[in-house]
């Protein structure tokens, strides 16, 4: 595991609070030379350590992620909640669509691998990976690239494949030249050709294959009322053999009363994983 070899030089853990405390911010010097940060809660919890990854261009403070992390920490799980750097040192804000996007899926997978390794090393136990929305997209890519990762199970919430569109004027000829693409919910997404393709090329087929081909349990949880998930994608998940669970009435973010339903389902999934 290449990424594990880099840990000794790259990981810098900075505990802003005493380790005995319930929460701490952890910094990671990524392979790209960018400092990434994560929130680490209940580090001494007895439950399975959990890493929760946020969605597209979001941060760890996205409400769905934050609430779920808080609940799992309260349930006794050490919970690491990183914010992908997206080439922004110590990124703390969601990155606007109009910003310059030089990050790629591979960089995201690389950061995730570093965080999984750090958490595994920190807890000495196999990790439960939970991804929300596009975070699941990164995790499937991670599963495919690192099939031997120290994972116990993977839970993907509201997972959706990225949808992108090339610039109308055509993609730039030179690599490294910026152009305005359309990706996910961003209609104007300034990025490079390779970075764009790193996301869109890992499509539904690859994702389902990664989920079904994993050696650990991969479970998918979707909201019955999630408008962002296209029926065709859900159909592919069902027909592709993915363990799909649906929370009736819930939306893409499991807001409101469905927050508790989400917590219960996750708790139950974590328990089933034993």
């Amino acid at each position: 595991m290449g990424h594990c070899g880099n840990l000794s030089r790259a990981i810098l853990m900075l505990l802003l609070l005493p380790i005995t405390a319930q929460a701490a911010v952890v910094e990671l010097d990524t392979d790209a030379g960018i400092i990434a940060t994560a929130d680490f809660r209940n580090p001494d919890g007895d439950g399975d350590p959990v890493l929760i990854l946020h969605g597209f261009l979001q941060t760890r403070d996205f409400p769905t992620v934050r609430r779920l992390a808080g609940n799992l920490a309260d349930e006794g799980h050490p919970v690491l909640r990183p914010t992908l750097s997206l080439s922004v040192p110590r990124r703390s804000q969601s990155l606007k669509c109009e910003a310059v996007h030089t990050h790629s899926l591979d960089q995201d997978v690389q950061e995730l691998g570093q965080w999984v390794a750090w958490l595994h090393r920190r807890t000495g136990r196999r990790i439960v990976l939970i991804g929300h929305s596009a975070g699941g997209h990164v995790i499937t890519r991670y599963l495919a690239r690192y099939p031997d990762a120290p994972l116990k199970q993977v839970i993907l919430i509201s997972i959706a494949p990225p949808v992108g569109r090339k610039p109308a004027a055509g993609e730039p000829r030179k690599e490294g030249e910026l152009a305005e693409y359309s990706l996910a919910y961003c209609l104007r997404y300034a990025t490079t050709r390779s970075a764009f393709h790193s996301y869109v090329d890992w499509g539904p087929l690859q994702m389902i294959a990664a989920m079904t081909g994993a050696q650990i349990p991969v479970k998918v949880l979707v909201g019955g009322n999630d408008k962002r998930l296209k029926p065709a994608w859900l159909e592919r998940l069902r027909t592709g053999g993915v363990a799909l669970a649906e929370v009736p009435g819930a939306g893409h973010f499991f807001d409101g009363d469905h927050e508790f339903e989400l917590n219960d389902r996750i708790d139950k999934m974590l328990g089933d994983g034993d």
């Binding site: 080439s87 922004v88 703390s92 910003a99």
Partner: peptide
């Protein structure tokens, strides 16, 4: 001064002009 994109540009000013 806390805007992430400023630090993004400082870290990698390659696309500063575009940005």
């Amino acid at each position: 001064a806390r805007w992430d994109e400023l630090y993004q540009q400082l870290a990698k000013p390659t696309y500063f002009t575009y940005w």
